[in-house]
Design a protein around this nucleic acid. Structure first.
Lengths: 223, 223
DNA sequence: TGAAGTTGATAACATATGTTATCGTCCCAA
DNA sequence: TTGGGACGATAACATATGTTATCAACTTCA
């Protein structure tokens, strides 16, 4: 994919670039995210289990509020979570997360800035929260892992590809096409998630998603 | 920002993850992109100058065709370039690049797969191309640079933030708002680039961009 | 220098999508 | 058990945006 120009000032030396915590958080958030992709790293997970807060919460529980600074990495043991932001009083869903997935509001978590997104459960869920300070410890241990750099690169590349594809899909595809892709590629989302959340994720009103479904249903009916 | 689940199979061992070239290309593409942010690295650039092909080309010269595999890293000495893809016969501009910026169709360059994008000049330009094999050499030398990992992390985080912001902007903002942001934050683009390319970048027709401009002009007029 | 192409504005109309309102179904908690 | 709320379908209308066509100003270049 295409590379983007970065419109930011840049530091004069590398040494100042990554205060310890910043580096740590960025890495660890990737680590947790990919935990299930790299089973060999599960020993680290188990070791830090005791520092995690276990939450057993109902649907619509807010785990991070838009505007607040993210203090925990979030891991989903059971249930389902979405991230969204508010635009003119309306929810815009950015993504869904399910069992065995980790997430954070990355920019907020890494850079200690207010989160652009709210994170909330959309099913009764079991959640683990790992506070930043332990994340920092964990990353220190991880740096001793062989192939650490390669792991990071792999994660970065994967992430970037995912973002780019979401971005391009919004530019390229109509809402109807986006819904069909969702049906084909991630049917578990359509099956499991309430339709108004799907509509919000696709970027259309609930009414319009209803129209799309109705149109597709007609197209399929053959006599 | 939010982290995305990666829907891909995963390798059993790290050792197999990064064939030499893949790793190299990913890194080097970031390196060139950030060259101007890290002047200290310019010695590497100068050293590899001799392996680069210099092109002095007119506007509308295609540097990489959608569907072809990217073979070169592209650096712009003078002029202006855009990346786009074709949807139902229509151009969708993804990004603009200017003097002293480097780019590639990253996914294609790194993974040796067909490019999703076409890259073409939109002004008469002076371009340098660095073939993959030299990119591989360069990255080897770069690995000896102190703070190499931190540099990579910094680049990754910056890139990801940029992609996310572009993505969110499409979800959140109307075309009119997107145009106003462009005017405020990157006015050089609006000044320099023909309006139909801007319209394509904003995701609207040329006619509608004209309407937007006309509406904003009326709003500004005060007697 | 003149003809052809490029760019941008605007009008008229077509289509896509949003908004509001209504209704039926289902589910859960008092 | 039942009543309110959440969810989804649909209709009617409003708005945003696309499409096509036309015209004028401006390049480009033979």
């Amino acid at each position: 994919m295409i590379e983007f120009k970065v419109y930011c000032s840049y530091p004069q030396s590398f040494g100042d670039l990554f205060p310890y915590l910043r580096k740590s958080h960025y890495l660890i958030s990737m680590f947790f995210h990919f935990r299930n992709k790299f089973p060999r790293l599960n020993v680290y997970w188990d070791k830090y289990l005791e520092f995690q807060q276990r939450l057993d919460v109902p649907a619509k529980t807010i785990l991070l509020d838009e505007g607040k600074v993210s203090q925990n990495y979030i891991y989903i043991e059971k249930g389902c979570v979405r991230s969204y932001f508010n635009k003119n009083g309306e929810d815009k869903t950015v993504q869904f997360f399910f069992e065995e997935e980790g997430l954070s509001s990355l920019d907020s978590f890494v850079n200690n800035i207010p989160s652009q997104f709210t994170i909330e459960t959309i099913e009764p869920s079991v959640i683990y929260l790992l506070p930043k300070q332990y994340v920092a410890q964990l990353i220190t241990e991880l740096s001793n892992e062989p192939d650490f750099t390669q792991m990071i690169l792999y994660m970065s590349a994967q992430r970037q590809t995912h973002y780019i594809n979401e971005f391009v899909s919004f530019i390229r595809d109509t809402p109807e096409e986006r819904y069909q892709h969702l049906l084909q590629e991630r049917p578990h989302i359509v099956q499991r998630i309430a339709q108004h959340y799907i509509a919000s994720y696709l970027g259309v009103s609930t009414v319009h998603l209803s129209r799309i479904k109705s149109k597709l249903a007609k197209g399929k009916t053959r006599f």
